[in-house]
Design a protein around this nucleic acid. Sequence first.
DNA 1: CGTTATGTTGATTCAGATCAAGAGCGGTGG
DNA 2: CCACCGCTCTTGATCTGAATCAACATAACG
Lengths: 243, 243
Amino acid sequence: MSGTIGLFIRKLEQFGKLSSSERQILENLPIDVRQVGADQDLGWDGQRSSHCLLLLNGMVCRYRTMQDGQRQIMSFHFPGDILDLSGLLLGRLDHCIGTLTAVEVAPIAHTTLLGWIEQHPGLGRMLWQATLVDAAVFREWVVNVGRRPALARIAHLLCEVVTRLQAAGLEDQAFSLPITAIELADSTGLSVVHVNRVLQELRVKRLVQARDRMLAVLDWGGLRHAAGFDPDYLHQRAMPAAA
Amino acid sequence: MSGTIGLFIRKLEQFGKLSSSERQILENLPIDVRQVGADQDLGWDGQRSSHCLLLLNGMVCRYRTMQDGQRQIMSFHFPGDILDLSGLLLGRLDHCIGTLTAVEVAPIAHTTLLGWIEQHPGLGRMLWQATLVDAAVFREWVVNVGRRPALARIAHLLCEVVTRLQAAGLEDQAFSLPITAIELADSTGLSVVHVNRVLQELRVKRLVQARDRMLAVLDWGGLRHAAGFDPDYLHQRAMPAAA
DNA sequence: CGTTATGTTGATTCAGATCAAGAGCGGTGG
DNA sequence: CCACCGCTCTTGATCTGAATCAACATAACG
């Protein structure tokens, strides 16, 4: 299943019905697919970009690096997510965007997007909503990192990822996550060593499985309970659930 | 200096010039001032509101309470900030909004705001930008809570607040912050006891002063250095700086 | 003026960091 | 095909920043 604009359309439709002209604009959008390898930066702190990036395939994260070299990941993104909207309206990126896997992205010129917003306010509104959901996720991460103990913190992160992937129709319950312990540490504010020990605990509790550098969820209910996970903050309207 | 819509206009103008019709709309907005005491909720988790709130006076925070009673504050807001925009477009609030001091707020009906957005796309764009700056602040809080040690964490929070207050023209360098150690703890993910000790350290280092339940910054450069504070993430365009 | 909040201090504990060293595993080049 | 290198993972030992517990002090407040 190669990446198309379909996932993006589906994501926007979560926020309301697209008019036929809006849908047509999206479907006819010329897609210039670019392949980028793993562990590359798609955008960086301070960058003034002229394009947003539509993620078609693969997985990326936003992060910031501190003076002492420590890194904090702020969010993950999956196919169908549009990456740089804050660069579009704020002009300057205040963090880096890095690939976790090899990815396919399609640049969309700022001028194109501004045209959409101007001529199709409904589309603009949906994009705004998408950024508001992003913001809700950031807030949840503040809570996660600020107040949850290590095990719940990691469990919560996994719950979020599973839920978002399912909503996007990308994975079923027995999903797998191509993520290293290092990335898990950088997104939870923990050390790699401790992440390792927590993952072992999750495995012993039969909540999670690790196989060839992928994480798989074994016991969704148990994981959700360990995390205290409540998906409301993801603002998923009555999802189609893609049986 | 009683709260007016002036601060809100000033905030929006940060993002670009208002057309005269846009400015007129804002200036003629009927303001229904409501007084609310300290430690009250203006909005709560799960709420479906029909109004946004324009903060005219006082200070509020967003927070979430966890099952075990722990609380995490996610952001502070000052006069001129508009509070509920995520409720406007996402329908449901995913956190609480609580007053830290007595405040004056002006409810603005969703219908009014949606009308603005529809008829004055420029205004809509500015509101969108305001929510993007909010999101940038959330991201910074993830970094703060995830990766900075206690002293830098508290120092960073203070730097952010000073900078934002100055940008809004609300306080000069020798600003004071009506905030308790409890609130500081809930926004940094630390315990009250530890916050107390860190504040003592900041006082010993002559970076900060505490007087009648207010915090005052003594040494801006020193505080900024202790925090590793870089204000870029606040996306303040060449501020008027209100000498 | 009690009464409830917040602030302060010291003693103790603990979750998670740090340090150190080995194990597994791709990759790569000779 | 193998030797080597650089990652990531794993484990154990040790350390430490911050939490917790427990008083008491000091404000705010009705």
